[in-house]
Design a protein around this nucleic acid. Sequence first.
DNA 1: CTTATCAGAAATGAATGCAAAATGCCAGTT
DNA 2: AACTGGCATTTTGCATTCATTTCTGATAAG
Lengths: 233, 233
Amino acid sequence: MTDALLDMAGEQATVPAGCVKAGTSLHDELLAALRDFIVEGNLADGARIPERLLCERFQISRTPLREALKVLAAEGLIELLPNRGARVREMSDNDVRDLFDVMGGLEALAGRLACERISEAEIARIEQMHHEMYRFYLRRDMHGYFHANQAIHQMIVTAAGNAVLSSTYASLSGRIRRVRYSANMAKDRDRWGEAMREHEAILDALRRRAGSELSDLLFLHLRNKRKAAQANP
Amino acid sequence: MTDALLDMAGEQATVPAGCVKAGTSLHDELLAALRDFIVEGNLADGARIPERLLCERFQISRTPLREALKVLAAEGLIELLPNRGARVREMSDNDVRDLFDVMGGLEALAGRLACERISEAEIARIEQMHHEMYRFYLRRDMHGYFHANQAIHQMIVTAAGNAVLSSTYASLSGRIRRVRYSANMAKDRDRWGEAMREHEAILDALRRRAGSELSDLLFLHLRNKRKAAQANP
DNA sequence: CTTATCAGAAATGAATGCAAAATGCCAGTT
DNA sequence: AACTGGCATTTTGCATTCATTTCTGATAAG
């Protein structure tokens, strides 16, 4: 962990003062940096996060750091034990299941709302991304596929045009990104093909602007994704 | 606003020290108290929240207060303008629409999950609450109806057995509770009756454990509720 | 050799102090 | 009379300091 923190401190040091964008407080910057750092998975599950270390690395005092930690705890990324400091939140299988289901619910909502207000241009853009993803699938390019897949889902959420949905979705995405759930698909070729077929159906429903149907498809798609991810010994 | 703050100080003063529950830090207590205070609607929309005042009222220093404010800002209840302090977040019609839609999406999810795991006893309990609500409706008891209605929706969310869903729902509930959206139904008797019929259908779908159908019904129910609430000049 | 206990060290929780930014006020000007 | 510019006050942001709790590890008893 210490090495990672040192790396981060390095980045911080290379952009010392001029990088302070107008209107951004030290606290906000720190919050974003810390969140990214944890979401990226640089810290092990359940790892302690000593304030002193972070202070030295970020070259700040404890006050803004502690504020940021409180916010991250509220977001569910870390947990604060009274008088015992911050820990990276460990996620049980149940937690992962719950997170996936809520993500599914939010994507279902996104699909429904998107059907109501998405433009033809946006649909065309998603179709394009879909074909791109398909090419990754044919090439068995796991990384590219995963990236394209995530972009499509994000695009649907964005197309819903709902700020509350977007921020809620982003928050849960951060929490779930710590869970490595992409690697499993490589072992399960059937699931990969199935996922592609599900995406075909999703795109079709979006084209027809069939809100309820798309809503169902997206929820079930996420649920299947979760089942595939959790079916690992 | 000052009066309201003074009132709160009074409450705080009446339970000065003994109320400190074991394991709860000053920060957590303060956070809960502040959140309740704002959710209850004691502060006007857009009202400034000077730190000094709150400190005097709560008899604490600025440090824990500022931590609490940061968390409330992250929750979306207030907004923090850099160097200009905290304000109660004003909600535009768009914000209310977005909130209602996401609440609808979450309830739709709750219904779907509830269908999978709800017990017969819980269904019976909801039926009972439904009939209770119906009696309030017949008596034109707006307050009682509203209360029973909220209890039913909460019960469905609880029955979903998803911790992430519950906490997300609770957070959005807090943000939306500041909006008075109950009074309008009194003016629109048709909407009230329609809402009752929707609840009949919801209960029926739940009995049959028809997940997708219930999901649709709940989303549309919330959307209709929103439309009725926002149709006020 | 294991385990219990206790003192020192370290970390957290909260309060205070200081610098910078913003708000408000008043005078001077047009 | 209205508007602009500058100064004083207030308020926020962050650092530092103090108090309390927890952790560590060394020592001694079983």
